[in-house]
Simulated scan of single mutants.
Amino acid sequence: MSESVEGKKPVSRSERIRAWLFLLVVGGPIVYGVATVLVSTPFNRAFNHPVQCTIVGAAKGESRSKSYSGNSYVYVEASDCPGMRYVGERHGLTRAEVAERIDVLAGQRVAVDVGYWQAPFSDTLIVGVEGLDLGR
């Protein structure tokens, strides 16, 4: 199938298989991780489905590491939907202001828009809450 070039050893079938397996095992998770960081929020804003949840409250949360890099988010607590993070449009509001506006819905059963792209073992990413007023 392949002719050997002078001075080069031909690549065997098992070496090719090992190379492809290496790409899948190492490259696959790297590509998935980078795509999740860069694409998941816009994808979820475009493709989502409604789920009925009873809102208990919301709060701005932060995660920080020793290197002082961190992430800020709006955590939404619901009695019948476990761990949700709001990643939808904020229309110029801070995360704390969005959390206050979600708190107004406490005790109500509302539809939340859940994105289809979810990372395993993490909070559910929501992009919308029925009745949430984000106007200034």
Rank of each mutant, 00 (worst) to 15 (best):
T94S: 15
G88Y: 01
Y68G: 15
C53S: 07
V112P: 00
S69M: 05
V5T: 12
L105R: 10
M1S: 13
G27N: 00
E62N: 12
R13A: 10
G92A: 02
T36M: 10
L125P: 13
K9I: 10
G115V: 02
P50E: 01
T124V: 15
Y75W: 11
H49M: 06
E89V: 14
L105I: 11
A35Q: 01
V34P: 03
G115E: 01
E97G: 08
R136N: 10
V26K: 01
S122V: 11
V114Q: 13
M1V: 13
A106V: 01
G57H: 13
W20A: 07
W20Y: 03
T36H: 14
A19M: 11
P42D: 10
K66Y: 13
V104G: 03
T36A: 12
P29Y: 08
R18D: 01
W117C: 15
V39L: 14
R101M: 02
I55L: 01
H49N: 07
M84S: 14
G28M: 06
S14V: 09
A99N: 05
V104Q: 12
S67H: 10
V110Y: 04
L105P: 00
D80V: 04
S122K: 13
S40G: 09
K8R: 09
P50T: 14
A111E: 11
H91C: 11
T124Q: 12
P82M: 00
N48T: 08
G83Y: 08
A35P: 00
V11L: 04
G28R: 04
E77S: 11
Y68K: 15
E89N: 15
G92R: 05
Q108D: 02
A19W: 10
P42H: 08
Y116M: 11
R109N: 06
V11W: 09
K66C: 10
A111L: 08
H91K: 15
E3P: 08
R45M: 11
R101P: 02
L23D: 02
G28C: 08
G61S: 14
E97T: 13
R136C: 05
P82H: 04
